[in-house]
Amino acid sequence: MRGLGELEVKVMDVLWSASGPLRVREVLERLDTPRPLAYTTVMTVLDNLHGKGWVRRNRAGRAYEYTASESRAEAGAKLLRDVLASSGDAERVLLHFARSATPEESDILRRALNRRGGRG
């Protein structure tokens, strides 16, 4: 899965925060950007995100409604796997990350490994 541009990330934040599908106008109204955006700009970004597989869209009358294809956590995990796969040495990358992790990140990893170890 390809990475996202700055505006694409903001659009995905809106979709991930939504409780249901959104139309272009609703995404536009919820975007927090330093300058006003055109409706067509947001429509183009959503179309690009659909083409990249980040969002699903369903016809609702004459418009589309958009939802994220997967949760923020699922998308993050997929990106992490892509980085590890492209590194050529996943073990070295993971070990480097573990050594450089913040105390909070280390706690998260420890809790996850403990939960995983408790399952058969």
Rank of each mutant, 00 (worst) to 15 (best):
V11K: 05
G3N: 08
G120N: 12
V83L: 12
A73L: 12
L15N: 09
G76C: 03
A63T: 12
V27F: 11
R35L: 02
R35F: 07
E91K: 14
D89I: 09
R59L: 06
L28N: 03
A112I: 12
A90V: 06
E105S: 02
N58A: 13
V55E: 06
G61I: 14
E6H: 09
D89Q: 11
P21E: 10
L80P: 00
L7E: 04
R25I: 02
L113I: 07
L109P: 07
L37N: 03
N48Q: 05
A98E: 07
E91G: 06
G118L: 11
V83W: 14
A18I: 05
N114G: 02
R30N: 11
L95H: 09
A101N: 05
V83T: 05
H96G: 04
S17N: 14
R81P: 10
E65I: 14
L46N: 11
I108E: 04
L79T: 14
T33N: 01
R62F: 12
A38N: 08
K78E: 12
Y64I: 09
R99N: 10
V55H: 09
A60C: 04
R30K: 15
N48E: 07
A85P: 00
L31A: 05
R59Y: 10
A98I: 00
R92D: 08
A75Y: 14
G3K: 04
R116E: 13
A63W: 15
P36R: 10
G53A: 08
E8C: 04
G3Y: 02
S69C: 12
S106W: 00
R62D: 13
R35G: 03
D32P: 01
G76K: 09
I108S: 00
L31T: 01
A75W: 15
K52R: 10
S100T: 13
G117P: 01
R110V: 03
R111N: 10
L28P: 03
S87V: 09
V93K: 01
L94D: 01
P103Q: 03
E6A: 07
G5R: 11
G3H: 07
G117S: 15
R25P: 00
T33G: 00
E70V: 15
R119C: 02
M1I: 08
R23M: 08
V55P: 00
V24I: 13
M1H: 07
L95M: 12
A73W: 06
V11T: 13
A75G: 04
K10S: 08
G5P: 11
T33D: 00
R92P: 06
D32R: 15
D107R: 14
K52N: 01
S71F: 11
V45A: 00
D89Y: 05
G88Q: 04
G88T: 11
W54S: 00
R110Y: 13
G53H: 06
L28E: 09
T41P: 03
T67A: 13
S106P: 00
D13R: 14
R119P: 11
D32V: 09
R30T: 02
S100C: 04
R119H: 11
L79N: 05
T102F: 02
A68N: 05
L84G: 01
P34H: 14
L84H: 08
E29S: 11
L31D: 03
D13N: 15
A112S: 10
G88Y: 08
Y66E: 07
S87W: 00
E29P: 02
S106Y: 00
A60G: 11
R30C: 03
R116K: 12
G61L: 11
D89H: 08
E65V: 15
N58S: 08
D32F: 01
